[in-house]
Design a binder for these strands. Structure first.
Lengths: 207, 207, 207, 207
DNA sequence: AATGAATGAGCGTTCATTCAT
DNA sequence: CATGAATGAACGCTCATTCAT
């Protein structure tokens, strides 16, 4: 009947689903997968336990859904940032700015995502999920590396291994963002400062 | 009564304790805190469950002990590396070399430590443990920052925020080590390569 | 208002009811009461769950209805067979023939009926249902016994306890029918063979 | 160390196991598999739920154990009865006597066994268990059939299909025993009466 | 001191039943 | 009326912890 639009019922369903995911995200990111019960999620989402199972096959799938959604969001937003118009330098600047915004606006997801997939090591809740998530992450790093490669060819960046350069930029930005977002003082993240530190000083733009 | 030496009984006790910790480390680092039962640890350590409780108040304390021991080891080894003779440049080189060795030789501990305390975010098994471990980590970063500060004064390093410089070096070295230690290829970690990348190319030693 | 005929609405209602009962019979007889959910029945009957509850107070009543209908069918059909014209010998022959046909044409009901009420022991889904069903069964046996009694008086049958004779005939015919209907070979049931075995050989018609 | 005898500990374990099985038998035979919870069994056996799982992998295994034990008991006792000294006539008499005693002394097991494996149809709790149990039953029937076969050769019994003869005897004896054991009056089972009915009147001993 | 059998709270999950639409 | 999304009690099962031996 309707093509683009969802029926009101479908909209409501989607809304409920989102509410459950939000409640679960809040709890999982705060206490971790194993310390959150379905009962608890149900109470916070203001549904009965059974209702959760109407939307998600089991606890693991609910958890996985959150992480995959997060991974998709991060991947699509960061990918787009790297595909914008401009030279490689401005692309990387855009990437950083976008990443800062993304992290700032999605602290809970970020927290959960890094706890599960680990920037480095991690012990996954679900066998294979870790690998799946890391591959998302790796795709972004590779896209970033491709930008560095082109920038190196154009003599915008110093001639270093593009992949390690990308990895380095990513890990530094993660570290700084974690530092700012988690700190007890919790200063608003200063995008300009990051940009300045990475590019003008550390990151090797040819002068 | 006894001053330096432990009685044979005390030695034996220490030995048992260590065996339990080792068994637990292997299991926790492989499967994660929540997927390892005390039963399982007992079997691997070749003791009865009850015996585990003679040495550790509960599962959480056993876990905590492993992490705190790891943190102590890392802290003491890395601190010492930074206190060796030489200028700031060679101190940082020594720090990196030591860290590579430390990680390579203690993969299990490293895996567990980063899964729990997170290079960045993490969701702790035990409330407060995360903070405690991060403070250990932070002490090392601060020591490294102090070295950078002195190096900057001596004009060995460029004039950047010493703390962020330390954080950056640390996060990059973590990222590279994770990459090497976890990679499916699992090349033996190339200390010289790290050194070269960090110092000659990225890390901005004044030339 | 209406005397004999049902309004179209009532007819439709009856039709729906029958469809539900049929769907439930198929599922119950295949998987057993506890392994069939109302959801499942609803899907097979192509109604909503709620609709099932318009027709039957609850799952138990739906189940009970199937069994009671089956019991009624069996009772009425077998009773009628025993009431037909003829001597006692041909009555019993008729009874057997009818029973064979009844079982063959209603395997699902038979399966469910015997699983629930048990030829012998059984553990009922519903307290009291077992007893209720057995009383139906017992009525048939008593009717059969009455025929044997008369036949014994007429010297058609040997002078044995009519009730036990009836019980024996019934249990043997059940056993043979089960054997034939369930057997992996599943020969079409040979009515004549049964008749021959029961009457000419085992069942002791006076010669 | 000990060869034949069990250590006291092992004896105690066996005792506990038996107590659990007994409690479970009582409940299962009364209310059926699906209407008995592990909690309930635990309470009746005066153990904690966890303890049940030390002895049996899960509810199904506990149930299966009861049935298989019963099947084994029935099979071994009835087989032995058929192997005793004597002609075929006395063997069958012995078989009947033994079966009466067996049923009388193990009403609960009998009730459960027939509810599950069904003398005829049944809907099994566990896929395959039904088949497994029926094969035990079938072995006994075949042994009995072999006795009939020999008896027929020796002209002790009338020349009928031995298998159907065995099936008939078994189903009649079941029916009578069920009748006596379940009846509200619950007369003590009259072995002699059964024997008399089967042999002298119905069962075709050549005269 | 060491043991490991016993415990039972608490989990994830199902499904008969209800009731707003 | 028919619907089917929502409910929540109750299940099977696990495992950290205890304590009699």
């Amino acid at each position: 009947m309707k093509k683009d639009k969802l029926t009101r019922k479908e909209q409501e369903q989607l809304q409920r689903r989102t509410e459950i995911l939000q409640a679960a995200l809040e709890l999982f990111s705060q206490k971790g997968y194993h310390n959150v019960s379905m009962q608890e999620i149900a109470v916070r989402a203001e549904f009965a336990v059974g209702t959760l199972y109407k939307f998600f096959k089991n606890k693991e799938e609910l958890y996985k859904e959150i992480l995959v959604q997060t991974a998709n969001l991060f991947y699509s937003v960061l990918s787009k940032a790297l595909e914008e118009e401009g030279d490689e330098y401005s692309k990387v600047k855009k990437y950083l700015k976008t990443k800062c915004k993304l992290f700032t606006e999605n602290i809970l997801s970020v927290r959960l995502y890094f706890a599960e997939s680990g920037a480095g090591f991690s012990i996954s809740v679900k066998r294979g999920l870790e690998t799946e998530l890391r591959s998302f992450y790796d795709q972004v790093v590779r896209k970033l590396a491709a930008v560095f490669e082109k920038g190196i060819q154009k003599k915008i960046f110093r001639p270093l291994s593009p992949y390690y350069l990308a990895l380095a930029l990513d890990s530094i930005s993660n570290a700084f963002l974690f530092c700012w977002l988690e700190g007890p003082d919790r200063h608003p993240v200063d995008t300009d400062l990051i940009e300045k530190i990475f590019f003008e000083q550390i990151y090797l733009v040819q002068r």
